[in-house]
Design a protein around this nucleic acid. Structure first.
Length: 831
DNA sequence: GCGACGAACTTACCC
DNA sequence: ACGGGTAAGTTCGTCGCG
């Protein structure tokens, strides 16, 4: 890019700014306005003197931190007219009310036509100055006769701004803006005032962002640290420029540690701050600790402190604060979502090279200087792993944020339902569809998908056919949408309707519903991306970007059906979800019938898949049939050389052509079974599927059990992990993991909803819940090996071996229950 | 009063 | 705080027994 191009891009006629570029300083005497291009990172708004200003934080094309202030958008909401009075009269009525309440100067209103659940409606669009007063105005004015309900007064002003101007975070914006230079208390290179609303532009350039990854260590004699008394002993930081910094309370108080950290944040001035568990742990602790010490945790760009925001995350104004733990939720392969497990899964940490410290180990280590070195090293590795995970996930996170329109720091914290909704809101706006309020509705279950009984046993050469994007395709095909749904009492319109099988719900054939339009555009966009990916080098920035985007599109597309059936959704309409599954059942049943007609043997089927004998000719015919009849793509996905079905649905294991095992639903795939049971079951499956030798599998299990009883198994392989899903007092039964959780809390540990409790079964007497101990409070010598043999190893392996005639007794070795009458409980040393 | 049995509770998976 | 369908382990109440 040459200088002239830059000037053309940057400057329109009347500028009065200094442009620094490549060491050149150019001054334009009469210049006022320029064109600024920047990457949008964060957005918030402030109300000053009763007027809102939107603040767009970003990084400019020439790599400067910028804040763009825009006051152009007037806040507004809608009042739905119920048709009892003439709209003009109602408009007069609310104007009178405004005068009476002395609101008139701040307010204006007009009549508009919109659509609400597809029906044309007349609304009053009410503008006001202060967006924080929207709810007040709405409730005052909706008392007027002729007003049904108020709408969109629950849309936050900063979201409103992005929606109405069609702007998406994590993308490039162009704006005509007036430079204001520096502004007191705002930590950016330059502040601008927008002259007109910004617009999105296509720039295939990676913004040059500064990332800061951090991790803290707190000191606590027992249990979880308490910020009012326990110090922050180490803060480790790794930044995207490759440098590392550590602050520790070696021989000083932790106020200095916090001070140093705050200074570093100012000095490095990150655009993105990343942590692991920082929303729930690090930030609240640092905040409390600072306040205890009479300090302020000033790390943002306006001299304020991190604060709680929507979706329960912590917001740092002007920067994006990301908690990678939120993104770990989207990696189902990792069952216990510790930093180490996620980093290891992503190939960032080498498992062997790392000493895994537990919080309980800290006090002991801190007492010795060699121990302190261990802590420092561990903490630094944490910060490095966090930066590594961020790098691995950043493209996806950026693209998801850009696609659904939620700012980067919110998109990770927002549950899938809110991500989908954010995207739908943007689509609805473009179609003139009003955004319904979130209302509490009763939960009424409805029928879902078809799952067939599998044909138990081993089968050779099995193909899995599945329908590509079945539910989204059906929603598009039959125009299933909240705005096309016809209530039972409504007469059929001339353009005709699609009628869902079984349930009879009707949907207009025309016009396109907004789900149809949204899904079509998502699916088409993904296809275009996939085509473009084919011609790109996998290492290029563009490839990474587009690949991340197509993945983001896929997750949003697939979640649309779930969203439709979610009672919390703004557009929840049960018949919409119910119709999708009904058409889904009809589709798969038709495919099954057709397979039967063709004489194609079916071994199993679940929702949108058929497991059939791998007969290419018949599969081709079946596939063609479905394509022609319904326009749906049914094609082979996986081919199993050999597959084993247990008697249960949703649980099977197959040998793939490349020699890998695909284990579905069985204990191997479950995080609430011990690693020991999972390893042995996997071993058994490998022997059965590859060597077809139940005898060898039995020997394998027996030898494992012998090792177990000789204490040759690792303690950590015996831990059971289960999630605390509600307040401990709400549990109706004394479940082992709940009892273990209570013991942790007794010892001063903090546990919250969603935490996983790791516990072991000890040889204490009583029920299982009496025997459960948090694993950090017990050791290998305490565990009840017989429990592990009888309730973990044997059931998990028998699940597979049972169908080969193997009995429990065949697996038992001395020390297990077959000898319990002869061997006293606890005696485990016969080998 | 006691044990067998099944319902209820609970979690995590599949698609 | 995204849907329904499903398996499976543990707890706990109930029923029948004499």
């Amino acid at each position: 890019m040459d200088i002239r191009q830059i000037l053309i891009d940057l400057i329109t006629v009347n500028l009065s700014i200094k442009v620094y570029f490549a060491g050149l300083r150019i001054t334009f005497e009469k210049a006022i306005t320029m064109i600024l291009r920047f990457f949008l990172l964060d957005i918030n708004y402030e109300v000053t003197d009763g007027r809102p200003e939107v603040r767009l934080w970003g990084v400019s094309e020439d790599n400067r931190r910028v804040l763009v202030i825009d006051r152009s958008l007037k806040p507004y909401f809608y009042l739905l007219l119920d048709g009892n009075r003439r709209p003009e009269d109602v408009l007069e009525g609310i104007k009178r009310r405004a005068v009476e309440a002395s609101l008139s100067l701040d307010m204006e209103a007009r009549i508009e036509e919109k659509r609400y659940f597809g029906k044309p409606v007349k609304v009053l669009k009410v503008f006001l100055k202060n967006p924080n007063l929207m709810a007040n105005y709405a409730s005052l004015l909706s008392k007027e006769d002729g007003i049904g309900e108020c709408l969109e007064e629950d849309i936050r002003y900063s979201s409103r701004y992005l929606i109405d101007y069609c702007l998406n975070p994590c993308g490039w914006l162009e704006v005509e803006a007036k430079p204001l230079g520096h502004k007191e208390g705002i930590r950016v290179d330059e502040v601008f005032e927008a002259e007109s609303p910004p617009r999105m532009i296509e720039v295939h350039k990676e913004p040059s962002l500064r990332i800061l990854a951090f991790s803290i260590v707190c000191y606590s004699e027992t249990g979880s640290p308490n910020p009012t008394k326990d110090p922050v002993i180490v803060i480790s930081v790794k930044t995207s420029d490759g440098s590392i910094r550590q602050f520790s309370a070696f021989d000083r108080d932790d106020g200095k540690v916090l001070e140093d950290f705050i200074s570093l944040v100012h000095e490095f001035d990150p655009d993105i701050i990343v942590g692991y568990g920082c929303n729930r742990r690090d930030w609240p602790y640092l905040l409390d600790r600072c306040h205890t010490l009479g300090m302020r945790l000033s790390v943002d760009r306006i001299g304020s402190e991190p604060h709680g925001s929507l979706y329960g995350h912590i917001s740092v104004t002007g920067r994006a604060n990301l908690d990678l733990f939120d993104f770990a939720e989207d990696i189902p392969e990792v069952k216990v979502k510790t930093l180490d497990n996620i980093a290891e899964y992503l190939g960032i940490l080498k498992p062997q090279k790392r000493t895994v410290l537990e919080e309980v180990d800290i006090p002991e280590l801190w007492k010795k200087s060699s121990g302190r070195q261990v802590i420092l090293r561990w903490s630094l590795e944490n910060a490095e792993a966090i930066l590594g995970i961020f790098e691995a996930l950043r493209d996806f996170a950026f693209q998801l944020s850009n696609l659904v329109g939620l700012p980067l720091d919110q998109v990770g914290a927002a549950a899938m339902g809110f991500r989908v909704e954010s995207h739908l809101i943007r689509q609805a706006y473009k179609f003139g569809e009003l955004i319904p309020r979130r209302v509490e509705k009763p939960y009424v279950p409805y029928q879902g998908a078809v799952v067939l009984e599998p044909k138990k046993g081993i089968h050779e050469n099995v193909a899995v056919l599945d329908f590509k994007a079945l539910y989204p395709s059906l929603m598009v095909a039959f125009n299933i949408s909240p705005d096309t749904y016809l209530e039972p009492d409504e007469p059929e319109p001339p353009q005709g309707v699609y009628v869902a099988p079984e349930v009879g719900h009707r949907f207009l054939k025309e016009p396109d519903g907004f789900y149809r339009r949204a899904l079509k555009s998502l699916m088409e966009a993904r296809e275009i991306l996939r085509k473009r990916l084919e011609g790109l080098s996998k290492n290029s920035y563009e490839y990474r970007l587009l690949d991340a985007r197509q993945k983001a599109i896929k997750t949003v597309t697939n979640a649309c059906y779930g969203y439709a059936g979610w009672v919390g959704a703004r557009w929840y309409v049960k018949p919409v979800a119910e119709a999708v599954t009904a058409w889904g059942r009809a589709t798969i049943l038709d495919a099954l019938k057709e397979a039967k007609n063709l004489g194609l043997e079916v071994f199993y089927s679940d929702t949108d898949s058929l497991f059939v004998e791998n007969d290419a000719g018949k599969i081709e015919i079946l596939s063609k049939h479905m394509q022609e009849k319904l326009g749906l793509t049914l094609k082979p996905d996986e081919i199993y050389v050999r597959i084993l079905f247990t008697e249960a649905k949703k649980r099977y294991a197959g040998l793939l052509q490349d020699g890998r095992l695909d284990i579905v639903g069985l204990e191997v795939a479950r995080g609430d079974w011990t690693e020991a049971a999972r390893k042995v079951q996997e071993g058994v499956l490998e022997i059965i599927l590859k060597e077809r030798s139940p005898k060898k599998a039995v020997e394998y299990v027996r030898s494992f059990l012998k090792d177990l009883f000789m204490g040759k198994v690792s303690y950590k392989d015996l831990i059971l992990w289960k999630t605390i899903t509600k307040d401990l007092r709400e549990y109706k039964v004394r479940a082992p993991h709940v009892e273990a959780a209570k013991k942790l809390i007794e010892r001063g540990w903090k546990l919250s909803l969603g935490d996983k409790v790791g516990y072991v079964i000890t040889s204490k007497p009583g029920s299982l819940y009496d025997k459960a101990e948090p694993y950090i409070l017990a050791s290998l010598k305490d565990v009840d090996l017989r429990y592990y043999a009888e309730r973990q190893i044997i059931p998990a392996t028998l699940r597979v071996l049972e169908q080969f005639g193997v009995k429990e007794e065949d697996l038992m070795v001395s020390g297990t229950s077959c000898l319990k009458d002869r061997v006293p409980s606890g005696q485990t040393t016969l080998f």
